[in-house]
Simulated assay, not measured.
Amino acid sequence: MDYNATTPVDERVLNAMLPYFNVHFGNAASRTHVFGLKAEEAVDVARKQLARLLGAAANEIAFTSGATESINLALKGAFEANRHRGNHLITVETEHKAVLDTCAHLEKLGAEVTYLTPNTDGLITAEQVAEALQPNTLLVSVMLANNEIGVVQPIADIARLTRERGILFHTDATQAVGKLPIDLAHLPIDLLSLSGHKLYAPKGIGALVVRNKTALIAQQDGGRHERGRRSGTLNVPGIVALGRAAQLAQSCMDDEAARLSALRDRLETDILVAVPGSAVNGSRTQRLPNTTNIRFADVDGELLLMSLNEIAVSNGSACNAASTEPSHVLKALGLPDELAYSSVRFSLGRHSTEADIQTAVEHVKQVVGQLRR
């Protein structure tokens, strides 16, 4: 029940990528022989598969090692390329650390960053963004769906606002790609980051969508791969896997969203009924179909997570698992430390079943009861 941390590689994805380790093992940049051409062809197919899922043009896809690299490339690359237009950035306190830490780095280089505080439901509004705009605002970065509480921000409204003002807009769509429909043909988003291991592809592969005519300076040099945006030998097996995963997600997204939201609602309702003093963190209407974050009053948070040893859950982002601080996302919602510590994220996925839900509810009920006693 921790699919937002990572997903297992789908068997169909694995089968698609395996030949590119030892049969079609060529370097996609080696265009003088059949081995390289075969690899390049596979990359082109995957690029089109991912582009179709996102409603983007294939030449707007730049493959990376994952969402963290994509976010760094988007924010740092856009800042360097467009600094003459301004040095002010806007983001949200509940963003992933990949965004927050990158913004902190840019502040050391002269950027001014405004961090918006969400409402108690975890949502911000386009009006908040509008009020924060300055004459020197260069870029706005708002994640599409939050990795901890699952809330889905009003990206379309914010993107239209920034486009009207001539301001760049980046969204971290890591948790949304493959779960929610995204059509960049109708969304004025300039930069979009994603990671393969959130949609049943392996770890170590991701992409940054760079809309045409968006100025960006590469953050690593050496070969000018990916249309000069990201140098480095392409991870052909990973790229093939990401393309196949995107194709599968597109084919089953609606049905899977309906199935998972029903399972999520049952899990949530049954826990709230079975465990007094429990409540949901974040919006219960504008959110991912697979995610719920529940707080448990009068329970030691560390003991709670350690005692829930029959199910895989978390109390925040996997990237912050070693931190002793309460979730910065839940703190931004106004939760006191004790409730932030005793909150648990449940995130479902392709292999989640009704039996899993029943097991989880019974286990949570038993553990919370024991800890309270």
Rank of each mutant, 00 (worst) to 15 (best):
S141T: 12
D221S: 11
E148C: 03
A340L: 10
A201Y: 00
R227E: 12
R287L: 00
N22L: 15
L138N: 12
H96Y: 04
V142F: 14
G238A: 01
V364T: 04
N212V: 05
E112I: 00
L133M: 05
P326E: 06
E310W: 09
Q247A: 11
L304R: 04
L242G: 08
L288N: 07
L216I: 05
G334T: 13
N82K: 09
H197T: 02
G369W: 10
T162C: 14
D356R: 10
V368M: 08
V45I: 15
R52Y: 06
V210I: 12
H186N: 09
N281Y: 14
V240H: 09
A132Q: 07
N293P: 00
N146A: 09
S70W: 00
G223L: 13
G223Y: 07
V151M: 07
T137F: 06
S342W: 00
P8S: 14
V313Q: 05
V236M: 07
V209R: 06
A111D: 08
L305W: 08
P154C: 06
M1F: 07
R224H: 10
L339P: 01
G282A: 05
A322D: 07
I311H: 01
V92A: 07
E354H: 15
G232N: 05
D121L: 14
E41F: 08
E256Y: 12
G238P: 03
K179P: 02
R264T: 08
T117K: 06
V313F: 05
T174G: 10
T359I: 09
Q49T: 03
G316W: 08
A215K: 06
L304Y: 14
I205S: 01
V152N: 06
V273Y: 05
A262M: 04
D2M: 03
N59P: 03
G369M: 09
V344R: 04
G316H: 08
D157E: 13
T114Q: 15
S323Y: 09
L263M: 07
L339Q: 10
A245M: 07
F25R: 14
A246K: 01
L199F: 15
N87Q: 08
A29F: 15
G206N: 05
P289K: 04
K48N: 03
L100E: 00
R224T: 09
R230D: 09
L106T: 07
R295E: 09
R345P: 04
L138P: 11
V361L: 01
A5M: 05
F21Y: 15
E112Y: 04
I189P: 14
L53C: 00
I124E: 04
L208G: 04
S195H: 10
G196E: 00
V367R: 01
L304T: 10
D254H: 08
A322F: 13
N212D: 14
P154S: 08
N119S: 15
T32S: 08
L116C: 14
V361P: 09
A318S: 05
A321S: 13
L144S: 12
Q247Y: 04
N82I: 12
N146I: 00
Q219S: 02
A62D: 06
D172S: 06
A74Y: 12
G26K: 08
R52L: 08
M17P: 02
I189W: 12
A74V: 06
M17L: 10
F63G: 05
F25W: 14
K331R: 13
D254Q: 11
T171H: 11
C252S: 01
T120Y: 11
